[in-house]
């Protein structure tokens, strides 16, 4: 599904060079639930950005569904993300002027699908995350857990092959954290979607098929 080969990435910050990824090699199979874990600044978010094509590695290859995306054009990457990738953000990143259902629909607006079809898919996605009764609420009217479930519905509305989640429970209370992680696990099982979660919380490891431990830009352990 996703193969990272000899990935390297450096940043310059305040004159110093920070090695965010150091010869990273990782294979993620289709349908796996992977947790990437490590302390702050270990390179786990950089790895997620690079795997999704949001950031480019300095060297190395990322084979996504048989295609090297490390050198793909921006439009090609957008198309891949729209068709195959779902994103879940720590800060939810919902559009404040759109209702829950419109936020979910927004992903499909630039497609050739008919409006009714888009709406039906968005409603089905909201039903999957148990948020249908809140479909006409604006983000400001939703709790943190509900916002994240709305974000999750947006991530699954196009039936992606992989969902990438960057600290998806970072802003949630323990109860909402459990709800969101249970939903991710359910999506992983029911839809056979590959899930990659970046987190610093070891308590979430029980959800994973594979835990990737990172430190100083390198993978130190895969279990």
């Amino acid at each position: 599904m996703i193969e990272a080969i000899d990935l390297n990435k450096e940043y310059r910050r305040a004159g110093a060079i920070i090695r965010a990824l150091a010869d990273v090699n990782l294979t993620i199979k289709s349908g796996e639930f992977v947790i990437v874990q490590g302390p702050t600044g270990c390179g786990k978010s950089t790895l997620l950005n690079v795997l999704s094509g949001l950031d480019l590695p300095d060297s190395g290859r990322i084979i996504f569904d048989g295609e090297n995306i490390a050198r793909a054009t921006e439009d090609r990457l957008s198309k891949i993300r729209r068709q195959k990738v779902g994103f879940v953000f720590q800060d939810f990143n919902l559009v404040p002027t759109l209702t829950a259902v419109e936020n979910v629909m927004a992903l499909l607006w630039p497609t050739v699908l008919r409006e009714k079809e888009i709406e039906n898919r968005a409603i089905a996605a909201l039903r999957d995350v148990h948020l249908l009764e809140r479909k006409d609420h604006y983000p400001v009217q939703l709790s943190g857990g509900e916002k994240q479930r709305c974000g999750l519905a947006r991530a699954i509305v196009h039936r992606p092959r992989v969902i990438l989640a960057d600290e998806p429970t970072g802003n949630l209370d323990p109860e909402s954290e459990k709800q969101v992680m249970d939903l991710l696990k359910q999506i992983n099982k029911d839809m056979e979607t590959t899930i990659i979660v970046v987190t610093h919380r070891a308590s979430l490891n029980s959800y994973a098929d594979k835990v990737v431990q990172m430190e100083k830009g390198a993978i130190i352990k895969i279990q």
């Binding site: 949001l54 957008s78 994103f87 953000f89 559009v95 607006w109 630039p110």
Partner: peptide, 14 residues
């Protein structure tokens, strides 16, 4: 919001 739309697959043209 623009960055989020780009993440979820909107092109610059969209």
């Amino acid at each position: 919001i623009i960055a989020t739309l780009k993440c979820i697959g909107w092109t610059n043209g969209d």
